[in-house]
Design a binder for these strands. Sequence first.
DNA 1: CGATGGTTTGAGATATATCAAACCTCGTGG
DNA 2: CCACGAGGTTTGATATATCTCAAACCATCG
Lengths: 232, 232
Amino acid sequence: MSACDTCVVRNRAICASLDGDELKALNAIGRHRTLEPGESLMWEGDDSVLVANVIDGVLKLSTGTEDGREQIVGVVYPSDFIGRPFGATTGHGVTALTDARVCVFSRKDFDAFAREHPALEHKLLQRTLAELDRTRRWMLLLGRKSAGEKVASFLLEMSERLAPPGCSTFSEQTLTRFSLPFSRQQVADVLGLTIETVSRQFTRLKADGLIDLPSRREVVILSRDGLAAEAG
Amino acid sequence: MSACDTCVVRNRAICASLDGDELKALNAIGRHRTLEPGESLMWEGDDSVLVANVIDGVLKLSTGTEDGREQIVGVVYPSDFIGRPFGATTGHGVTALTDARVCVFSRKDFDAFAREHPALEHKLLQRTLAELDRTRRWMLLLGRKSAGEKVASFLLEMSERLAPPGCSTFSEQTLTRFSLPFSRQQVADVLGLTIETVSRQFTRLKADGLIDLPSRREVVILSRDGLAAEAG
DNA sequence: CGATGGTTTGAGATATATCAAACCTCGTGG
DNA sequence: CCACGAGGTTTGATATATCTCAAACCATCG
């Protein structure tokens, strides 16, 4: 019995496109790895040697400038795919925000396997297209939204993305209370702001009664409509 | 003889993955369309009914907020792919910046065709992955760079992307003189700035001797190194 | 308890936006 | 041919959102 049989993301990750034998073959070229918060799986500019599936935890994808400015360009959750198949280098670092478990493959092995399994490539294509859509929507936020709009948008997105995988395909799950996997600085790096500006917006939204902040990482959404209005 | 046989982007677009018969089949479900500057092929939020290949010209992909702020989230050139296959809606509008020719397919027809031709899907996957990389790099610019850095980065990118397709696979072609397919307002919409700020940065770069501006749309790069330094 | 790292709050500086006017360029029609 | 108008662009003066620098604050952990 292969490790995949007990995998919790088995039916949501790109592996869902494979049957029993194929899964066994994929399992043979992959291995598990755990990461602690702050630990990196790859760095910006690295040769693309690894790809992976997220089993559990939240990881950030980030790039930076020479002089140390950082921008988080993506956030991945369980069942998401990591890394750059069919490419020479990695455009961004990948770092765990929480304790995380991933299923790692040599990029070359994965490439070869994928080329022989069109259904897998199709799943990967779907995922990549969806990620591109999401990324482009984020560009509107980065380029054109005010600090207040950015933070409100961010909290709404979090309440959706952190929701446990919906049983129903339709009803979009959203959370009213959740624990941020980001420090204030990391929120700033997602939104293209400074930590101070993020902090001020949090306290303003709290003062306005739209959210509550029981602890540093905890967020309670008191008025989803109000937040949506702030999100622009 | 199908129209594809004489297509100038035949060997660079995703069609390059197809043999003669396949190409004929694809040709049967596609049709040509020309667009004038400012004309749109699809709008943000539309049902995803079309996909297309760019044959000639430059088009922008853009989203906006309720209150009219706009962000250009991508720019496509000859041989690039347009639209959202395998998805219900279009996340952004597509509008011609120059006179343009595109090869249009019904999304459903294309989806069906693609699913039967893994090599085509593979090409599409490669393209989508590359576009995602590029988009993420742009996020660093939007979130963390100053106006001066943004404009310098933009001009360097233009000098690469507007270069005619390199004969050699290696030597990265770049142009020293080119004509921008963007108005000042559109440059602002790419960079997340106002038109006035863009204009001021152009004149500053000119005053600093890094570029020359023979006419409104024309740009000459006098010091690529200097620009690269400004780009951060 | 006191040290430490992250967070909040405050006061001031500054890059960019905003508002407004002048300036080109180019096509049109008198 | 020139005057005119219209769009786009540049330049100027001012406002303001966000950044920067600095201090106070607060949980957590030894």
